[in-house]
Design a protein around this nucleic acid. Structure first.
Lengths: 288, 288
DNA sequence: TCTTCTTACGCTCGGCGTAAGTATC
DNA sequence: GATACTTACGCCGAGCGTAAGAAGA
């Protein structure tokens, strides 16, 4: 289970080809073949079917492990080199779309800073591997509860904002006149599936305790909130947003009353903040 | 960052000695020295001070990563070999002390089963590495919320029980006559610190959102609930227990009313259940 | 001086590339 | 027969042990 072999394995599995993986990794195709053979011998089982190249049952399972394993390895190395490295003068902040709010940005320094908006699930990894100095993630949670983030590495999370959430409904929708809505009543509705821009349906299911429900209607892959609002206004499905963000032409936002959920934003860092990052994090925390 | 080197490193750090680590690992002491040198060279920094052998700042940090890294590696290998291996006839169940309740045990088969009670924090690792087939963990959570478990590996968790919690107070305690207590009012009290037997104070802090408070009075290291109750009855500190477990001579249990917390028990497994384990898990789930 | 870690050195084995082999489309 | 993975084989370097060296107690 040498990480090198693991890395080769995930590459082969991703590209469904030994030779393509060899090109990408800078090995000969023979070496890749030997890597896979070594890994299969080590584990005592076949991992890939050949022609076409596709993971076996055990191979599928290994992929689940290998991803986070390699990520953690990267994170560990990045963390250590960061500890030893120079204090950075530039600052990179990654944020999920809904985590970018005036209040959170007010503390951002104007110069020598980069803001990158990425899908929510990539934020912790970006901070852990050192691709960014700070991360801003958002999600649904019970009031004053921390977010449930995948632990790729020991990261420090601080809550920086909590705000009420609302259901976005098209103007003519029968429920649009209500003063408040209960999530449990909307389990069987059609929802927009926009994991990158909006809130993953999985989080709604977790919040209500329902294993099923919240059927996806249209899937939107992208990080633009305006598009998401337009889709909701067009009646293509429901979506949940922070109340302050929800108003849009042709749509109404109805507060969510039950369960008591908030849209929470957290600031993520490794605890080893260098130079300007430290001051910024401090400022953000105190501000909110 | 070869896992072999990492393994050597954590062993040296734990034993504070190159030669002792060499004995334990079956290497010569020279090889251990070379391992550490290779790792330090690879990362470009010193990890250990010599004479006495103690981790540097970077070394400390590496230890935090290395533990979970090696654990995940073990878990991955165990998971795969389990997938391929024979269906086991015997069954091993690990449980944290408070997860062992009549209701959860009623489904346990009488023969060919081993029950092992361990500190709460070791349960997920034991299941992930295949040391046990099933795990029973308990903890505090909001009603119908899942427990926050460290994710050493992709484990499947199913809730099997939820019950009210109570504060255990000695008979004469001024608060003992109350009908209900709010956790926020007890932040400044002295608490028993019994992470293995009772509920870790850290979970109380997380539940109330208080970063501080819940000062530990006496620390009890052990897994026996009766001892914990005796300590509480003797007035050495407060503790929180499932209400049904709380009554003891010289102590009273007062229900916790705010925040709305439950004592939750979850069944843990890898999803690859073999033989009798599968039937058992099914029985437990349906039972509760 | 004894203990403990480091360095030198030689040997062996692992891992890579070249090239030939084999199987599938 | 072309494409794509496997196997054979030789070379180089990584990693181990033996043994000598250095440094702290």
């Amino acid at each position: 289970m040498d990480p090198h072999l693991l890395h080769t394995y995930v590459t082969v599995a991703r590209l469904s080809s030994f030779s393509a993986a060899a090109r990408e990794l800078g090995y000969t195709q023979s070496a890749v073949s030997q890597h896979i053979a070594a890994l299969e011998h080590d584990l005592g089982m076949s991992l890939l079917n050949r022609r076409p190249v596709t993971p076996t049952r055990a191979g599928e399972r290994l992929l689940e492990h290998a991803g986070s394993l390699l990520l953690r390895l990267d994170a560990a190395r990045a963390d250590l080199t960061r500890l030893a490295g120079e204090p950075a003068t530039a600052l990179t902040v990654v944020a999920s779309p809904l985590a970018v709010r005036p209040e959170t940005l007010a503390a951002l320094p104007v110069s020598r800073a980069t803001l990158r908006v990425q899908p929510r699930e990539d934020i912790p990894a970006a901070v852990a591997t050192g691709a960014a100095d700070l991360g801003l993630v958002d999600g649904l949670a019970a009031p004053s509860d921390p977010l449930r983030l995948p632990d790729v590495a020991p990261l420090t999370a601080t809550g920086v904002a909590e705000e009420p959430v609302a259901v976005v409904l098209p103007d003519g929708h029968p429920l649009a006149r209500r003063r408040g809505l209960r999530l449990a009543d909307l389990v069987d509705a059609r929802w927009l599936d926009a994991p990158d821009a909006g809130l993953p349906l999985e989080q709604l299911r977790a919040a209500t305790g329902a294993a099923r429900g919240f059927r996806p209607a249209l899937r939107y892959e992208g990080t633009d909130i305006r598009t998401l609002l337009a889709l909701a206004a067009a009646g293509l499905g429901l979506t949940l947003l922070p109340h302050a963000l929800a108003p849009a032409d042709g749509a109404l936002a109805v507060p969510l009353t039950e369960p008591r959920l908030v849209h929470r934003t957290e600031l993520l860092h490794t605890g080893v903040l260098r130079g300007s990052a430290e001051g910024l994090a401090e400022r953000m925390r105190s501000r909110i």
